[in-house]
Amino acid sequence: MINFELEGEYIPLIQLLKATNLVQTGGEAQIVVSEGEVKYNGEVDYRKRLKVKKGDVVDFRGQKITVV
């Protein structure tokens, strides 16, 4: 499990994947989101610009990111 400390109101989903080093580039992040590999609060979500906020949970390839 990864606890990601949010410093603002939100972080876009693709930036969160990059910031936690689960993908190498923004392009790779966009691809995995568009292919349905990412779950947001338990549901597959295809929105690349999704605003992830405190309390949200993102699942990706067996890693769980909790935003605190």
Rank of each mutant, 00 (worst) to 15 (best):
A29K: 03
M1K: 11
I14S: 04
E28W: 06
E5T: 05
I11G: 01
L22N: 08
Y40H: 14
P12D: 08
K54Q: 09
I31H: 07
P12C: 03
E28L: 08
E35G: 06
L16W: 00
K18C: 06
S34V: 03
F60P: 11
E7Q: 13
V23D: 01
V58R: 00
I14C: 07
V32F: 09
K51Y: 02
F4L: 06
V38D: 01
T66L: 10
E43P: 03
A19R: 12
R49S: 15
I14R: 13
N41T: 02
P12F: 01
Q63S: 15
P12I: 05
G55H: 01
R61E: 13
I11Q: 01
K51E: 13
R47G: 04
T66P: 03
Y40T: 11
E37G: 03
E7L: 10
L6A: 05
P12L: 08
N21A: 12
D59N: 15
K48N: 12
E28C: 05
P12S: 07
D59T: 10
V44W: 05
V57W: 00
F4V: 04
S34T: 14
D45E: 13
E37T: 02
E43G: 03
V32Q: 12
G26Q: 12
Q24N: 14
K39T: 06
Q30W: 05
Q15A: 10
I2K: 04
R47H: 08
L6C: 09
E7F: 04
Q63P: 04
